[in-house]
Amino acid sequence: MTLNPDWRPSASLDTLRLRARILTQIRAFFAARGVLEVDTPLLGAHTVCDPHLDSLSTRYTGPGAPHGATLYLQTSPEFAMKRLLASGAGPIYQICKAFRDGEAGRLHNPEFTLVEWYRPGFDHRRLMDEVDELVSMLLSDHVSLAPSERLSYQQAFLRHAGVDPHRAALDDLQAALRAHGAVCELAGRDALLDALLTHCVEPHLGQGRLCFIHGYPASQAALARLSAVPGEDYLVAERFELYLNGIELANGFHELGDAAEQRQRFSAHNAARRHGGKPELPADERLLAALVHGLPDCAGVAVGFDRLLMLACGAPHLASALTFPMDRA
Protein backbone atom coordinates (compact mmCIF):
# COMPACT_ATOMS: atom_id res chain seq x y z
CA MET A 1 0.00 0.00 0.00
CA THR A 2 1.35 3.44 -0.88
CA LEU A 3 0.53 6.25 1.48
CA ASN A 4 -0.65 9.47 -0.08
CA PRO A 5 1.64 12.23 1.24
CA ASP A 6 -1.27 14.70 1.45
CA TRP A 7 -1.76 13.88 5.14
CA ARG A 8 1.15 16.26 5.75
CA PRO A 9 0.69 20.03 6.18
CA SER A 10 1.45 22.12 3.10
CA ALA A 11 3.13 24.77 5.28
CA SER A 12 6.57 24.04 6.69
CA LEU A 13 6.97 23.86 10.46
CA ASP A 14 9.18 26.97 10.25
CA THR A 15 6.29 28.81 8.62
CA LEU A 16 3.96 27.66 11.40
CA ARG A 17 6.41 29.00 14.00
CA LEU A 18 6.56 32.31 12.11
CA ARG A 19 2.74 32.34 12.01
CA ALA A 20 2.58 32.04 15.79
CA ARG A 21 5.19 34.79 16.22
CA ILE A 22 3.34 37.20 13.92
CA LEU A 23 0.06 36.53 15.75
CA THR A 24 1.80 37.45 19.03
CA GLN A 25 3.13 40.65 17.44
CA ILE A 26 -0.33 41.60 16.21
CA ARG A 27 -1.86 41.10 19.66
CA ALA A 28 0.94 43.14 21.24
CA PHE A 29 0.43 45.93 18.67
CA PHE A 30 -3.26 46.25 19.52
CA ALA A 31 -2.78 45.81 23.27
CA ALA A 32 -0.31 48.72 23.25
CA ARG A 33 -2.92 50.89 21.51
CA GLY A 34 -5.83 49.95 23.72
CA VAL A 35 -7.73 48.07 21.02
CA LEU A 36 -9.86 45.30 22.55
CA GLU A 37 -9.72 41.75 21.18
CA VAL A 38 -13.22 40.37 20.59
CA ASP A 39 -14.70 37.14 19.33
CA THR A 40 -17.93 36.98 17.33
CA PRO A 41 -19.73 33.93 15.92
CA LEU A 42 -18.56 32.31 12.70
CA LEU A 43 -22.10 31.01 12.19
CA GLY A 44 -24.84 33.59 11.73
CA ALA A 45 -28.50 33.68 10.78
CA HIS A 46 -27.66 36.32 8.16
CA THR A 47 -24.80 36.95 5.80
CA VAL A 48 -23.60 39.57 3.34
CA CYS A 49 -25.45 39.99 0.05
CA ASP A 50 -22.50 41.45 -1.92
CA PRO A 51 -22.99 40.48 -5.57
CA HIS A 52 -19.55 38.83 -5.72
CA LEU A 53 -19.38 37.14 -2.32
CA ASP A 54 -20.92 33.73 -1.85
CA SER A 55 -21.44 32.30 1.62
CA LEU A 56 -21.21 28.71 2.66
CA SER A 57 -24.11 27.59 4.81
CA THR A 58 -24.97 24.74 7.10
CA ARG A 59 -28.04 23.49 8.99
CA TYR A 60 -28.62 23.49 12.70
CA THR A 61 -31.44 21.35 14.11
CA GLY A 62 -32.15 21.12 17.83
CA PRO A 63 -33.31 23.23 20.75
CA GLY A 64 -34.25 26.65 19.37
CA ALA A 65 -34.70 25.31 15.82
CA PRO A 66 -36.74 22.10 16.03
CA HIS A 67 -37.33 22.04 12.27
CA GLY A 68 -33.85 23.11 11.33
CA ALA A 69 -32.43 26.54 10.54
CA THR A 70 -29.90 27.70 7.96
CA LEU A 71 -26.76 29.21 9.43
CA TYR A 72 -24.20 31.01 7.29
CA LEU A 73 -20.45 30.78 7.75
CA GLN A 74 -19.34 34.41 7.89
CA THR A 75 -17.50 35.89 4.91
CA SER A 76 -16.09 38.40 7.41
CA PRO A 77 -16.97 39.39 10.99
CA GLU A 78 -18.04 42.85 9.82
CA PHE A 79 -21.74 42.83 10.76
CA ALA A 80 -21.22 41.39 14.23
CA MET A 81 -18.32 43.76 14.95
CA LYS A 82 -20.42 46.75 13.89
CA ARG A 83 -23.11 45.64 16.34
CA LEU A 84 -20.43 45.66 19.06
CA LEU A 85 -19.31 49.14 17.96
CA ALA A 86 -22.90 50.43 18.10
CA SER A 87 -23.23 49.01 21.60
CA GLY A 88 -20.26 51.11 22.71
CA ALA A 89 -17.38 48.63 22.60
CA GLY A 90 -14.85 51.26 21.48
CA PRO A 91 -11.89 50.24 19.28
CA ILE A 92 -11.97 46.46 18.65
CA TYR A 93 -10.08 43.84 16.68
CA GLN A 94 -10.55 40.20 15.90
CA ILE A 95 -8.41 37.42 14.43
CA CYS A 96 -10.80 34.85 13.03
CA LYS A 97 -11.67 32.47 10.23
CA ALA A 98 -13.77 33.65 7.31
CA PHE A 99 -15.34 31.50 4.59
CA ARG A 100 -16.14 32.10 0.94
CA ASP A 101 -17.76 29.70 -1.46
CA GLY A 102 -16.31 29.36 -4.94
CA GLU A 103 -12.86 30.75 -4.12
CA ALA A 104 -9.88 28.45 -4.48
CA GLY A 105 -6.61 28.98 -6.29
CA ARG A 106 -3.06 30.18 -5.90
CA LEU A 107 -4.16 33.08 -3.67
CA HIS A 108 -7.50 31.77 -2.42
CA ASN A 109 -8.74 29.11 -0.04
CA PRO A 110 -12.44 28.84 0.87
CA GLU A 111 -11.48 29.04 4.56
CA PHE A 112 -8.95 31.67 5.58
CA THR A 113 -7.88 33.91 8.44
CA LEU A 114 -8.64 37.61 8.71
CA VAL A 115 -7.32 40.28 11.05
CA GLU A 116 -10.16 42.78 11.19
CA TRP A 117 -10.31 45.94 13.24
CA TYR A 118 -12.39 49.08 13.76
CA ARG A 119 -11.28 52.49 14.94
CA PRO A 120 -13.94 54.93 16.18
CA GLY A 121 -12.90 58.48 15.33
CA PHE A 122 -10.67 57.40 12.42
CA ASP A 123 -11.40 58.02 8.77
CA HIS A 124 -10.01 55.76 6.04
CA ARG A 125 -6.88 57.93 5.66
CA ARG A 126 -5.93 57.67 9.29
CA LEU A 127 -6.66 53.95 9.23
CA MET A 128 -4.33 53.56 6.20
CA ASP A 129 -1.58 55.05 8.40
CA GLU A 130 -2.23 52.44 11.05
CA VAL A 131 -2.39 49.55 8.57
CA ASP A 132 0.91 50.80 7.13
CA GLU A 133 2.51 50.82 10.60
CA LEU A 134 1.28 47.34 11.51
CA VAL A 135 2.04 45.61 8.21
CA SER A 136 5.44 47.31 7.83
CA MET A 137 6.35 46.26 11.37
CA LEU A 138 5.26 42.65 10.77
CA LEU A 139 7.11 42.32 7.47
CA SER A 140 10.21 44.34 8.36
CA ASP A 141 12.14 41.29 9.67
CA HIS A 142 11.45 39.30 6.51
CA VAL A 143 11.10 41.58 3.48
CA SER A 144 12.88 44.80 2.59
CA LEU A 145 10.29 47.41 1.72
CA ALA A 146 10.67 50.75 -0.06
CA PRO A 147 8.63 53.64 1.39
CA SER A 148 4.89 53.03 1.09
CA GLU A 149 2.90 54.56 -1.73
CA ARG A 150 -0.67 55.86 -2.02
CA LEU A 151 -2.50 56.08 -5.32
CA SER A 152 -6.08 56.84 -6.10
CA TYR A 153 -7.94 54.15 -8.03
CA GLN A 154 -8.01 56.65 -10.87
CA GLN A 155 -4.24 57.26 -10.78
CA ALA A 156 -3.57 53.53 -10.73
CA PHE A 157 -5.78 52.97 -13.78
CA LEU A 158 -4.35 55.91 -15.70
CA ARG A 159 -0.84 54.70 -15.00
CA HIS A 160 -1.23 51.00 -15.72
CA ALA A 161 -4.30 50.59 -17.91
CA GLY A 162 -4.27 53.94 -19.72
CA VAL A 163 -7.94 54.71 -19.01
CA ASP A 164 -9.86 56.90 -16.57
CA PRO A 165 -12.05 54.49 -14.62
CA HIS A 166 -14.58 57.20 -13.76
CA ARG A 167 -14.93 58.82 -17.17
CA ALA A 168 -14.00 56.33 -19.90
CA ALA A 169 -16.81 54.99 -22.07
CA LEU A 170 -17.59 51.27 -21.93
CA ASP A 171 -16.09 50.82 -25.41
CA ASP A 172 -12.83 52.40 -24.26
CA LEU A 173 -12.67 50.08 -21.26
CA GLN A 174 -13.27 47.10 -23.52
CA ALA A 175 -10.60 48.33 -25.95
CA ALA A 176 -8.09 48.78 -23.13
CA LEU A 177 -8.80 45.25 -22.00
CA ARG A 178 -8.25 43.91 -25.50
CA ALA A 179 -5.06 45.93 -25.84
CA HIS A 180 -3.76 44.08 -22.79
CA GLY A 181 -4.56 40.75 -24.38
CA ALA A 182 -7.47 39.88 -22.12
CA VAL A 183 -10.31 38.64 -24.29
CA CYS A 184 -13.60 37.95 -22.61
CA GLU A 185 -17.26 38.79 -22.95
CA LEU A 186 -18.22 41.13 -20.15
CA ALA A 187 -21.36 43.04 -19.45
CA GLY A 188 -21.29 46.12 -17.30
CA ARG A 189 -18.88 48.77 -16.19
CA ASP A 190 -17.85 47.14 -12.93
CA ALA A 191 -17.09 43.80 -14.59
CA LEU A 192 -14.84 45.61 -17.11
CA LEU A 193 -13.14 47.58 -14.35
CA ASP A 194 -12.57 44.37 -12.36
CA ALA A 195 -11.08 42.69 -15.43
CA LEU A 196 -8.77 45.65 -16.08
CA LEU A 197 -7.85 45.76 -12.40
CA THR A 198 -6.88 42.10 -12.20
CA HIS A 199 -5.15 41.97 -15.59
CA CYS A 200 -3.46 45.31 -16.10
CA VAL A 201 -3.33 47.16 -12.80
CA GLU A 202 -2.91 44.78 -9.87
CA PRO A 203 0.23 43.02 -11.17
CA HIS A 204 2.09 46.37 -11.01
CA LEU A 205 0.86 47.49 -7.61
CA GLY A 206 3.18 47.55 -4.63
CA GLN A 207 6.25 46.01 -6.22
CA GLY A 208 8.67 45.95 -3.29
CA ARG A 209 6.57 48.39 -1.28
CA LEU A 210 3.17 48.68 0.32
CA CYS A 211 0.76 50.40 -2.04
CA PHE A 212 -2.58 51.75 -0.88
CA ILE A 213 -5.30 52.29 -3.49
CA HIS A 214 -8.17 54.55 -2.43
CA GLY A 215 -11.15 56.39 -3.89
CA TYR A 216 -13.08 53.55 -5.52
CA PRO A 217 -15.97 54.10 -7.94
CA ALA A 218 -19.22 54.67 -6.04
CA SER A 219 -20.60 51.48 -7.61
CA GLN A 220 -17.90 49.54 -5.75
CA ALA A 221 -18.39 51.22 -2.39
CA ALA A 222 -19.49 48.00 -0.66
CA LEU A 223 -19.99 49.31 2.91
CA ALA A 224 -17.92 52.49 2.58
CA ARG A 225 -19.13 56.08 2.73
CA LEU A 226 -19.29 58.13 -0.44
CA SER A 227 -17.71 61.54 -0.81
CA ALA A 228 -17.54 64.22 -3.48
CA VAL A 229 -14.37 64.79 -5.49
CA PRO A 230 -13.44 68.49 -5.67
CA GLY A 231 -14.12 69.80 -9.17
CA GLU A 232 -15.75 66.57 -10.38
CA ASP A 233 -19.39 65.60 -10.77
CA TYR A 234 -19.02 62.04 -9.50
CA LEU A 235 -18.69 60.52 -6.03
CA VAL A 236 -16.04 58.11 -4.89
CA ALA A 237 -16.12 55.54 -2.12
CA GLU A 238 -14.00 56.16 0.96
CA ARG A 239 -12.61 52.69 0.54
CA PHE A 240 -9.01 51.51 0.30
CA GLU A 241 -7.12 48.38 -0.54
CA LEU A 242 -3.54 47.46 0.27
CA TYR A 243 -1.24 45.69 -2.20
CA LEU A 244 2.20 44.20 -1.91
CA ASN A 245 3.95 42.63 -4.91
CA GLY A 246 0.70 42.70 -6.87
CA ILE A 247 -1.19 40.81 -4.17
CA GLU A 248 -4.26 42.26 -2.47
CA LEU A 249 -3.67 42.20 1.27
CA ALA A 250 -6.37 44.35 2.89
CA ASN A 251 -9.66 46.12 2.28
CA GLY A 252 -10.81 49.04 4.41
CA PHE A 253 -13.68 51.50 4.65
CA HIS A 254 -14.63 54.75 6.24
CA GLU A 255 -17.72 52.94 7.42
CA LEU A 256 -21.17 53.74 6.24
CA GLY A 257 -23.27 54.49 9.33
CA ASP A 258 -26.54 55.55 7.72
CA ALA A 259 -29.15 52.82 8.21
CA ALA A 260 -31.41 54.00 5.38
CA GLU A 261 -28.54 54.07 2.89
CA GLN A 262 -27.32 50.70 4.14
CA ARG A 263 -30.80 49.26 3.49
CA GLN A 264 -30.71 50.73 -0.03
CA ARG A 265 -27.33 49.13 -0.68
CA PHE A 266 -28.62 45.77 0.49
CA SER A 267 -31.44 45.97 -2.03
CA ALA A 268 -29.08 47.19 -4.79
CA HIS A 269 -26.76 44.26 -4.01
CA ASN A 270 -29.68 41.88 -4.14
CA ALA A 271 -30.77 43.32 -7.47
CA ALA A 272 -27.26 42.68 -8.80
CA ARG A 273 -27.37 39.15 -7.40
CA ARG A 274 -30.72 38.53 -9.09
CA HIS A 275 -29.28 39.87 -12.34
CA GLY A 276 -26.27 37.54 -12.01
CA GLY A 277 -28.51 34.53 -11.39
CA LYS A 278 -27.68 34.28 -7.69
CA PRO A 279 -30.22 33.86 -4.90
CA GLU A 280 -31.23 36.99 -3.04
CA LEU A 281 -30.49 37.12 0.66
CA PRO A 282 -32.51 38.85 3.37
CA ALA A 283 -31.03 42.00 4.87
CA ASP A 284 -29.51 41.57 8.33
CA GLU A 285 -32.11 43.40 10.42
CA ARG A 286 -29.97 43.24 13.56
CA LEU A 287 -27.19 45.14 11.77
CA LEU A 288 -29.71 47.70 10.50
CA ALA A 289 -31.14 48.09 14.02
CA ALA A 290 -27.62 48.69 15.34
CA LEU A 291 -27.07 51.38 12.68
CA VAL A 292 -30.40 53.02 13.63
CA HIS A 293 -29.22 53.02 17.24
CA GLY A 294 -26.02 54.67 16.04
CA LEU A 295 -22.68 53.44 14.73
CA PRO A 296 -19.86 55.66 15.94
CA ASP A 297 -18.03 57.45 13.12
CA CYS A 298 -15.33 54.90 12.41
CA ALA A 299 -13.09 53.21 9.89
CA GLY A 300 -12.51 49.48 9.64
CA VAL A 301 -10.21 47.14 7.74
CA ALA A 302 -9.64 43.43 7.17
CA VAL A 303 -6.15 42.09 6.46
CA GLY A 304 -5.76 38.67 4.87
CA PHE A 305 -3.54 37.00 7.43
CA ASP A 306 -2.56 33.95 5.37
CA ARG A 307 -1.46 36.15 2.46
CA LEU A 308 0.54 38.30 4.87
CA LEU A 309 2.30 35.19 6.16
CA MET A 310 2.82 33.96 2.59
CA LEU A 311 4.52 37.26 1.68
CA ALA A 312 6.57 37.25 4.89
CA CYS A 313 8.09 33.90 3.96
CA GLY A 314 8.39 34.75 0.26
CA ALA A 315 6.17 31.83 -0.79
CA PRO A 316 4.46 31.87 -4.19
CA HIS A 317 1.32 30.02 -3.10
CA LEU A 318 -1.17 30.52 -0.28
CA ALA A 319 -0.94 26.81 0.50
CA SER A 320 2.60 27.46 1.81
CA ALA A 321 1.02 29.50 4.61
CA LEU A 322 -1.81 27.08 5.48
CA THR A 323 -1.62 23.84 7.43
CA PHE A 324 -4.22 22.00 5.39
CA PRO A 325 -5.73 23.88 2.43
CA MET A 326 -9.00 22.59 0.98
CA ASP A 327 -7.40 19.83 -1.10
CA ARG A 328 -5.90 18.23 2.00
CA ALA A 329 -8.31 19.42 4.69
Binding site: D50, H52, L53, G102, E103, A104, G105, R106, L107, H108, A182, C184, D190, A191, L193, D194, A195, L197, T198, H199, E202, Q220, A222, E241, E248, N251
Partner: peptide
Protein backbone atom coordinates in the same frame (compact mmCIF):
# COMPACT_ATOMS: atom_id res chain seq x y z
CA UNK B 1 -5.61 27.85 -15.23
CA UNK B 2 -5.37 30.60 -12.61
CA UNK B 3 -8.29 31.79 -10.47
CA UNK B 4 -8.15 35.57 -9.93
CA UNK B 5 -10.60 37.64 -7.92
CA UNK B 6 -10.45 41.06 -6.33
CA UNK B 7 -11.84 40.70 -2.79
CA UNK B 8 -15.06 42.56 -3.56
CA UNK B 9 -15.14 42.01 -7.30
CA UNK B 10 -15.88 39.64 -10.11
CA UNK B 11 -13.98 36.34 -10.31
CA UNK B 12 -12.07 35.38 -13.46
CA UNK B 13 -10.05 32.46 -14.71
CA UNK B 14 -6.92 33.32 -16.67
Amino acid sequence: NEFVKPGKGQAFNR
